[in-house]
């Protein structure tokens, strides 16, 4: 018994002395709200007060569940009457839905794993068009990064920018593979709606 304890203590000292692998998945620093400067023009702040991020998940049968995120931050870069960039950070723990059980399930390992991946980020790489635009950028969600493109209706006036976007995201491409009941699986694609009214 005492020899086994010595072996364990030696192993513990050896392992704690090594550089530990703190995370197997990179995740954005919590609270890091720095956003890239626009090359020209100004920017509007995206906040929880002026932005809504909503989602709807559906099942094969057509049943749906809605929810969203309450804590959002970021910037929308503008140049004249056009937007040039969109950078958003969402606190995943602010997820809400119309059922407590659903909210808890979505936050857990089966979906967002909020304790492991506390932030969801989007950084645009290009914005094409004017008025009706196509925004392309990298979405980092659930520890995985993928490029997405989505259409949006944008209105930029003096001192105000409005953005309205509706699109779909395939959650399975970001490691969220839970399907639920085999006879009525949850669809991979999730409907997303983003509404911004920033001043």
């Amino acid at each position: 018994m005492s020899r086994n304890i010595l072996i364990i203590c030696a192993m513990a000292l050896l392992l704690t002395g090594c550089n530990s692998e703190e995370a197997t998945n990179p995740s954005p620093d919590a609270g890091d709200n720095t956003t890239p400067e626009t090359s020209s023009g100004s920017g509007f702040a995206v906040t929880s007060e002026n932005t809504k991020v909503l989602f709807v998940g559906t099942k094969k049968s057509g049943d749906s569940q809605a929810g969203g995120f309450k804590e959002v931050s970021g910037t929308i870069g503008v140049d004249g009457d056009k937007i040039t960039s969109v950078n958003v950070v969402i606190q995943v723990d602010s997820l809400f839905s119309d059922q407590d059980k659903l909210t808890g399930h979505l936050k857990n390992e089966d979906f967002f794993s909020v304790k492991e991946f506390p932030e969801l980020t989007f950084a645009s790489s290009k914005v094409e068009g004017s008025g009706e635009v196509t925004i392309t950028g990298e979405l980092n969600m659930h520890g995985q990064t993928g490029e997405i493109s989505f259409p949006a209706t944008v209105s930029v006036t003096d001192g105000n920018v409005k953005l309205d976007a509706k699109f779909k995201v395939d959650r399975t491409k970001f490691g969220m593979n839970y399907t639920g009941q085999p006879d009525n699986p949850i669809n991979a694609e999730v409907d997303i709606e983003i509404l911004v009214n920033a001043e």
């Binding site: 072996i7 192993m11 530990s20 692998e21 703190e22 919590a30 304790k115 492991e116 506390p118």
Partner: peptide, 28 residues
């Protein structure tokens, strides 16, 4: 079995950003 508990804990305990207790404490 006799030397594996620490190895198992090292492999399985997650490294969440704000985990309570912190990872090394949890492994111990």
């Amino acid at each position: 079995p006799r030397v594996s508990p620490i190895t198992a804990a090292w492999l399985l305990v997650p490294a969440f950003p704000k985990m309570v207790p912190p990872r090394l404490w949890a492994v111990g």
